[in-house]
Amino acid sequence: MSGESEQTRKRTVAEIEADLAASREQLTKAVDELSRRVDPRRQVEDVKERARDSATSFVDGLKSGDPKALGIAGAAAATVLAIVGLTVARRKK
């Protein structure tokens, strides 16, 4: 075998520098993405957006008569009434 195989051929300085530059770029992108994900302001915005979506979905379910949404609303109303009733009963004592 007179030619060098790809595995035994030594890389040139330019090839190494190109690999380092590509690695540096990938690392920069990864760090930027991680920074974005752990940014508290971004997390707050994500939670707000999910809460808005859930509330909208729940209200749409109530409007359309979805039994699950109606059950949740009924349970919440019953809980509020029970708390108010207990509070009033305690104050009368």
Rank of each mutant, 00 (worst) to 15 (best):
V13F: 11
S35I: 00
R24L: 10
E25A: 08
R42N: 15
R42G: 14
P40N: 06
S64D: 08
A14E: 15
K48H: 12
P67D: 04
L81M: 11
G71P: 00
S35H: 01
K63L: 12
A30C: 05
V59S: 09
T8V: 15
A18Q: 08
A75V: 02
K63C: 04
T8C: 09
T12A: 06
P67V: 03
P67I: 04
E15F: 07
A75M: 09
A51Q: 10
M1C: 12
M1F: 10
V80R: 12
R42H: 14
G71T: 03
A82S: 10
R36M: 04
A75E: 15
T12C: 05
L20H: 01
E6N: 07
A22N: 04
A75Q: 14
D32H: 07
A51V: 14
R50A: 11
D19Q: 10
R24D: 05
R11H: 05
V13N: 09
T56V: 08
A77F: 13
D19E: 15
L81C: 08
Q7W: 15
G74D: 08
E25M: 01
S35Y: 00
S23V: 01
R50M: 05
A18W: 00
R41C: 06
S5V: 02
T87M: 12
L70C: 11
K10M: 10
E25S: 04
R50Q: 10
D46W: 02
I83D: 14
V84N: 05
V84T: 07
A21T: 11
S64E: 09
P67T: 05
S64G: 03
A89E: 05
A82W: 02
L34H: 07
E45G: 06
I72F: 01
A73W: 04
L62C: 10
A78W: 00
M1W: 10
G71V: 01
D19C: 02
I16H: 05
L86D: 14
I72C: 00
V88I: 14
D39T: 04
V88Q: 07
V44D: 09
T56Y: 03
L34S: 08
L34T: 02
R24W: 06
A78K: 07
A78I: 01
A30S: 09
G61F: 02
L81I: 05
P67G: 00
S23D: 05
Q26G: 13
E25G: 00
M1L: 15
E33V: 00
P67N: 02
P40Y: 04
A51T: 12
Q26R: 14
S23K: 04
I83H: 06
I72L: 10
D32V: 13
Q43H: 01
D46S: 02
V13S: 13
S57Y: 09
S35C: 04
V38E: 09
A77Y: 12
R37D: 03
F58H: 09
I83C: 09
R9K: 13
L20V: 06
E4F: 13
K68H: 09
R11M: 11
G74R: 12
G65K: 13
V84A: 12
T79A: 15
L81R: 15
P67Y: 02
A77I: 15
L62W: 00
K48C: 06
E15Q: 14
A22E: 13
S57F: 07
K48E: 12
R91M: 10
E15P: 03
A55N: 10
S5N: 05
